[in-house]
Design a protein around this nucleic acid. Sequence first.
DNA 1: CCTTAGCACTCTCATACCGCGAGTGCTAAA
DNA 2: TTTAGCACTCGCGGTATGAGAGTGCTAAGG
Lengths: 370, 370
Amino acid sequence: MAATLTERRLFILKIVVQEFVETATPVASEMLVRKYGLGFSSATVRNELATLEDLGYLTHLHTSAGRVPTDAGYRFFVENLMERTSLSMAEQRMIRHQFYQVRGELDQWIQLAGAVLARTAQNASLVTPPRAEHLRFKNLELISIHETMVLAVLVFHGGIVKQQTFSPDTARSAEDLRRCAGQISDQLADLTVSQVEDLITHDAQQLAPLFGDFEHGVIDLVTHAMQTFEEQAREQIHSDGLLEMLSQPEFIPSLTRDDAERAVERLRRALEILKNGRGLGPLIPQALASEGVQVIIGGEHSEDEMREYSVVLARYGVGGTVTGVLGVIGPTRMAYPRSISTVRYISSLMTSLLGDLYAGETRPPFEDGL
Amino acid sequence: MAATLTERRLFILKIVVQEFVETATPVASEMLVRKYGLGFSSATVRNELATLEDLGYLTHLHTSAGRVPTDAGYRFFVENLMERTSLSMAEQRMIRHQFYQVRGELDQWIQLAGAVLARTAQNASLVTPPRAEHLRFKNLELISIHETMVLAVLVFHGGIVKQQTFSPDTARSAEDLRRCAGQISDQLADLTVSQVEDLITHDAQQLAPLFGDFEHGVIDLVTHAMQTFEEQAREQIHSDGLLEMLSQPEFIPSLTRDDAERAVERLRRALEILKNGRGLGPLIPQALASEGVQVIIGGEHSEDEMREYSVVLARYGVGGTVTGVLGVIGPTRMAYPRSISTVRYISSLMTSLLGDLYAGETRPPFEDGL
DNA sequence: CCTTAGCACTCTCATACCGCGAGTGCTAAA
DNA sequence: TTTAGCACTCGCGGTATGAGAGTGCTAAGG
């Protein structure tokens, strides 16, 4: 019961986890001695495995099957056993190059980040668009599409853009629109949603002398756009790499019928998680509030449907101004060192890119070794 | 051999197709007489089924299994047998309402169209963004994000917007940027990509007196943005409804081991088709060049990986100006009448919405009954 | 000539059973 | 404390078996 973690036990736990992560088959005592040239017999290893099982780090699906790490085992591995690695220079270079090719196109960063995370970690990925806790208005442009249709382009701090068309009651000249946009831009500059709301409810008279119906209509539009935008941005989780994750053995059924069935069911569940962000919801705010790379393993999730999955998350961007979350999601049997270093690298990279874009305090351009 | 299609055979073919589409199990002679109260015996039906099989409209997986339509059978059904239906008024109203709620946000139309198609047809859907064959430049805005970063917002005819950031060599005042954007807008107004290219290669001197390095840099940026945008727009296929399609029985494995395996394999394939648009590519230009609803059934596809799927497609938007393609994709055993009426309705709706947006000739607002 | 009852035949699907091989747990000895 | 030896467990693939569903054919009847 009160067994202690000797050096040897730590080592065995470590190689069991590594072995299982690599092969996806329960690991047997005999093969450990063979493969790792341990200086003691399989019987000894079996004893040690039994102790590690008592300690809660390993299990046994069935009496005659090899050992498999428990969630606690993975946790211990991540916390104490694994060595902290980085992506190879070549990989880092390649990734940087890909981001360089879409420089200037923020929308594509998210997509690219998702794709790169997925491919590098061979699992699914999730990325939320970079957002300020509260959007701050910067600029408004009104562009006439035709007589009865106007395109409003709202620009927010951090280079975030939202477009919306509307049809004003009365036709306006391009010059007119420009003037109107300029006036409103001046009025709303640097305000958050709630400040804009305050402005139109409390200080309406302050605007009234200058603005007519049209201007008020536009301000209403802007307010509404900001509200919905902020709201839907909060929930929006971009996910990718479904195919990569499905190439994991967990989703490839063996020839036995009920395993195939389970694989299909797993697959369907995974799809639902990624599609609607089901089960991921609670993680985002939590990740936004933390520093560094977060790892949530299997049963540690608050949601039941996530019990078989682990998530590796990190915040990116500049706290307080423009931030998002990105990460990797996959079966608990995940190459944690690899996932963690991938997430760490991509989040630094995105942070640096956003830093360039955003006027505020920029972190120093991160180093490769990070 | 030279059997003819009597009235009775047509009817039997029709109910076989309908029955198989509904139940997804091979249809037996006995059950047809029972379920449809046919005035003749199952033996007679068996004879008729055999003739229909000779004619190539039905098959038989195995000697002792019921009949299943062939691709030709589905084709004949779609062409001659099925009755043309429309979505119910209630459904139409609900869909219109959803589109109303995202009025003004073109990006969301595509997403919504995909979701609605999928849910209504209970299959996967695909939507390409509405695009002109050739983008026509309309307007450029340059907005300073901070000293060394400028946001360029390119507006094209049809209300299409592309945003791109860049960092000019020299800092520019907001006023300066505005003037520059105005000049370039004037110069490039109404031009297509190739016309812009012509302008900068052949008539460079015509611009030169007015423009400095900065202006030329911006024009290069615009050109590049237009090129890549047009290119990537051409390939971009938005897909949705994977989950809906996967709820079709084809993807739900029965308890037998090899069927489960096949289901998983099918699933993986389907994923690849939807993810990268593999197999869908050739359909898009074809659909863009046609009027009305297109149906491509199983083996009629040019691509092998599509042999088990049918696609129902329609163009939407105003030909020659801004158009896209949308449709439904699912197993060949598809509720064709339903899919076709869904696609028809959504494409009319999108056409009408785009008509409002785009200044050119608008179709009359379509009627419910359409 | 078309229809139909009857029946043999085929094939799938589910279940049970068997034997093998992998791997453990335990015991007893070094 | 380690380890060799061994019995025991269990999953897995293969095969046999039986039931059920549905067809194809044949021969009789309208």
